[in-house]
């Protein structure tokens, strides 16, 4: 199943041979009252393009914080967070906002669809940030909805869709701009086993057949198993699935 690039970015094409994600000595802490809580400590991580990574770990282990840093939603206290060739720690908030629109797609546990818009209109929202004609936008939306198996639900609003269908709309929205990276936060957390399997399979298709790099946070071992590689995060330290506590090298 091949989809032509939906949006031309141009910024990172010359660095196609470099890893998509490079984290070097990243630290992140939060202040809670007078107490400073270290969430990520001296984290190193490299993820090659096109990989489907599942990220597991107990609550409070820093999974969401890591995803926030990868998606440019938050900034590290120190270290380098280089994604798609850009060091996010050097970008202003406005620059990170623009960067997100071109490089990252998000899938959330709660779907976060806009209830007053149809499935097609929800998928179209990220495209409105690009100079693109109405006809082209519609063509791409139709293509994306077809890819997630919801071509016949384009005019339905989120309230008229099942949970699995809503999540598929959210996935279509995540890749409609042809981003290099898709970040999924427990995308199967609110779904039954059958729908969870379909969603995980869909993400696998995006990775295997369209070449998207996907980082998925999950608590579901079956969903994690569908990924090409599992990472465990515990107390801010990445470990291998077997539990050996050591800094992680390249994920291939």
């Amino acid at each position: 199943m091949a989809v032509a690039p939906l949006v031309s970015h141009g910024s990172d094409e010359t660095a196609a041979d470099r890893p998509l994600i490079e984290l070097v000595d990243v630290c992140k802490s939060y202040r809670k009252g007078k107490i400073r809580i270290n969430v990520l400590s001296n984290l190193d991580l490299t993820i090659e393009r096109g990989r489907f990574i599942s990220l597991l770990g107990p609550s409070g282990s820093g999974k969401s914080t890591l995803l926030n840093l990868l998606g440019g939603l938050d900034t590290a206290d120190s270290g380098v967070v280089r994604v798609a060739g850009d060091d996010l720690t050097q970008l202003s908030e406005e620059q990170r906002t623009t960067w997100r629109s071109r490089n990252v797609g998000f899938v959330f546990q709660q779907y976060h669809l806009i209830p007053v818009l149809s499935a097609a209109e929800n998928v179209e929202m990220p495209l409105r940030l690009f100079r693109m004609g109405r006809r082209e936008r519609r063509r791409r939306v139709a293509l994306a909805l077809d890819l997630v198996g919801l071509a016949d639900r384009a005019a339905h609003r989120p309230g008229q869709l099942s949970s699995g269908q809503e999540q598929r709309v959210a996935i279509a929205r995540a890749f409609i701009t042809d981003p290099k990276l898709i970040l999924a936060d427990e995308p199967t957390g609110d779904l039954d086993a059958e729908n969870a399997e379909q969603i995980t399979e869909l993400l696998g298709v995006l990775s295997r057949e369209i070449g998207k790099t996907i980082v998925m946070v999950t608590h579901d071992p079956r969903a994690a198993a569908c990924a090409s590689r599992e990472l465990h995060l515990d107390k801010g330290v990445l470990t291998t699935p077997r539990g050996t506590r050591r800094p992680l090298g390249k994920v291939r």
């Binding site: 906002t97 629109s101 998000f106 929202m125 990220p126 929205r173």
Partner: peptide, 10 residues
């Protein structure tokens, strides 16, 4: 906030 995550500026 979702729109901001998608890339909608302030």
């Amino acid at each position: 906030s979702l729109l901001k995550a998608l890339g909608y500026s302030r």
